[in-house]
C-alpha cells in the first residue's frame, strides 16, 4: 500500500451508532417492492420512483457522513486499510457476477447451441426435435426466436463503434492513471483535468453504446429477445454499460471533491477505490469485446 509506512494517527474508529443501515434496508426493500409491483402489472413504472429516490438520498447522506468524518481526520491508516480491502473484495464479487453471465455465454456457444444442432453427444436432440438446425454461432436458436419478422438478425460489426469504444475505455484507463500520478505529485490542476477527461470519456462510451443499441433494435433485428445470442449480448453489455455509468458518476463525484480540495498526496482512498473500479470496468469490456463482439 502506498502509505503503509506513513505515521499512524491514533485510534481505530468505531462509529457510535448510525441510522443509515436501517434506512438503506428500507430503501432497498422499497426499490424491490416497487419492481415487484411494476413487473406484476399492478401499476406503472412510477412505482419504482419512491425507492429510487430513497436510495439516492441514502447514498448521498451515508457517503457525505463518511467523507465528513474522513475530512475531520478521524480515520487512521488502519481504517483506511479496512476500506481498501473492503473495496477490493467488493470488486471481486462484481467479477463473479459477470462470471455468471460469461458462463452462460460460453455454455450457449460451446454446448447448448451445438447440441441443438446435432453436434456432440446429443444427436437425437437435433434429429428428432430440431431437424435442419445447424447450430452455428451466432444463433437465436432452432425456434429462430425474436429477431426480424423472418426470424433473422445480424450481429454488430466489431470494428466499427465497438472498437472505437474499446479505444475510448482504454484511453480513460490511461487518463485516470495519469490523474492518480498527478495527485501523488500534488499537481492538482493536472489531476482535475485528467479526471474530468476520464469521466467525459466514460459518458461518451455510454452515449455510443446507447446509439449502438438503437441501431441493433431498429436495423439489425438484434434485441434482448433475439434468442440466446440477444440474451447474452444485451445482458453482458447492458450490465457492463450500467457499471460504466455508475463508475462515471463516481468519477464525477471524485472530481467535484478534488475541486473542493479533498485528498492528500498519500491519503486518498476514495480516489483509488473509484479508479480500481474503473479499471475493473475496463477489463470486463476487453473480455466483452473479444468474446461477444469479435470472436
Amino acid at each position: 500500500m502506498t502509505d503503509a509506512h506513513a505515521p499512524d494517527t491514533g485510534h481505530y474508529y468505531v462509529p457510535h451508532h448510525s441510522p443509515y443501515p436501517i434506512l438503506g434496508s428500507v430503501a432497498l426493500f422499497t426499490v424491490m417492492w416497487g419492481a415487484v409491483v411494476y413487473l406484476n402489472d399492478w401499476s406503472g413504472l412510477w412505482s419504482l420512483i419512491p425507492g429510487a429516490v430513497l436510495l439516492a438520498l441514502l447514498f448521498f447522506l451515508w457517503f457525505a457522513t463518511v467523507i465528513g468524518e474522513n475530512q475531520q481526520g478521524i480515520y487512521n491508516l488502519q481504517v483506511d486499510r479496512s476500506f481498501r480491502m473492503g473495496m477490493m473484495w467488493f470488486i471481486f464479487s462484481e467479477v463473479m457476477f459477470f462470471a455468471a453471465f460469461f458462463g452462460a455465454l460460453f455454455y450457449a456457444r460451446v454446448l447448448s447451441v451445438p447440441w441443438l444442432g446435432g453436434h456432440g453427444v446429443k444427436i437425437f436432440t437435433n434429429y428428432v426435435l430440431w431437424p435442419h438446425f445447424e447450430g452455428l454461432w451466432p444463433s437465436n436458436g432452432p425456434g429462430h426466436v425474436g429477431g426480424r419478422a423472418d426470424g433473422t438478425f445480424n450481429v454488430m460489426a466489431p470494428f466499427g463503434i465497438p472498437a472505437l469504444n474499446t479505444l475510448i475505455l482504454l484511453t480513460s484507463g490511461l487518463t485516470v492513471t495519469i490523474a492518480h500520478h498527478a495527485l501523488r505529485g500534488g499537481r492538482r490542476a493536472m489531476l482535475a483535468l485528467f479526471l474530468a477527461l476520464t469521466f467525459l470519456l466514460g459518458f461518451t462510451f455510454v452515449g455510443l453504446q446507447i446509439h449502438e443499441y438503437g441501431e441493433a433494435y431498429r436495423t439489425l433485428g438484434l434485441r434482448l429477445s433475439t434468442g440466446v445470442y440477444g440474451s447474452t449480448f444485451f445482458m453482458l453489455t447492458g450490465f457492463h454499460g450500467l457499471h460504466v455509468t455508475i463508475g462515471a458518476i463516481m468519477l464525477t463525484v471524485i472530481w467535484l471533491r478534488v475541486i473542493k480540495g479533498h485528498f492528500s498526496p498519500n491519503r486518498h482512498f476514495a480516489f483509488e477505490a473509484v479508479s480500481w473500479y474503473w479499471h475493473f470496468v475496463d477489463v470486463v469490456w476487453l473480455f466483452l469485446f473479444v468474446f461477444v463482439y469479435w470472436l
Binding site: W115, K122, F124, T125, V128, L129, W130
Partner: peptide, 9 residues
Amino acid sequence: DAIPGFINE
C-alpha cells in the same frame, strides 16, 4: 431427466 427441447437417451 426429461428436458424440454433436448433428448436424453
